[in-house]
Amino acid sequence: MSTNLLDLQRRMASAVMQPLTRSLTTRRLGDDGQSNTRAAEQFLKPNSRLTALERLQIYNQQYWYRLFGCMEEDFPGVQAVLGRAAFERLMRAYLEACPSASYSLHNLGARLPEWMRTHPKLTAPRTRLALDMARLEWAHIEAFNAAELPAFTPQAMAALHADTRVRVQPHVRLLQLAYPVDELLLHMGNDADDHCATSNSAAAARKSHSVRRVANQRPQRIHLAVHRQQFQVYYKRLVAEEFVLLTALHHGESLGAALEAAFAKSRLSEPRRAAQVQAVFQTWMKLGWLCPQEKKNSRSKR
């Protein structure tokens, strides 16, 4: 590793990634309080048309345009909930705090929901609604790109017993939400057909006026599975017991333990519980949500 090259690359990257001014130009002062003009002149050449700072600014602007555009595509629901100005403030703060740590722009928004949870002021007064929307939109992206494993056959499903541990399909994401944000996205014309491979983005066409209308609805606690069928992402509402059961299975509990957890607080009668279990397993089988657990390496048993 070269210290000279590394030092230059650190200085350039730091300059390129520094926030822009409100008028989308490079700041006069860097984070260290030093003149950016002088800093740029130290490692970049001017030419007859552009100063060193102006040349740096091309990269500085492109960095923010690219990343902001990506977040705008991936989180249109959050933008619709917050409005453009608040969304821009949120994104600027998020991208400053959580710059990309991946070779793929697909992962740029991975830390947004957690980061929003710890920075509620930036999304006030619609903090919880915006957070739920971010969680849903990120789950959508994950479901879009996740693996799909061979599901249990009906015969294998019939042979499951209380001690069996199963695996929930990797593309199934389970969310407990305080707002019906799935409806919000549907109102925005969130058609999975519009999702694309290059940007991994949510649908482009959004109807913010209808979002505003729905956004004013009261909170409503929902349980949601975000999943994929035939390469399209869908949202499926779950009843509370179903959600707990699926979550427990996802965490590696045995079927017996998961069923116990699911109905621990349930007011359903025993016959209705049995009927519900039968119904959800039939649905999950149709959807291919349950898969055999990966076989452990025999050497690890020693």
């Binding site: 090259l5 650190r10 390129v16």
Partner: peptide, 24 residues
Amino acid sequence: WGSVDGRYTHDLLPMPYTLEAARI
């Protein structure tokens, strides 16, 4: 180049045209 210390710019940043950079 475009990343340093695990942070990615997602840009195609120009190289310094040095022998050291060529070697690396």
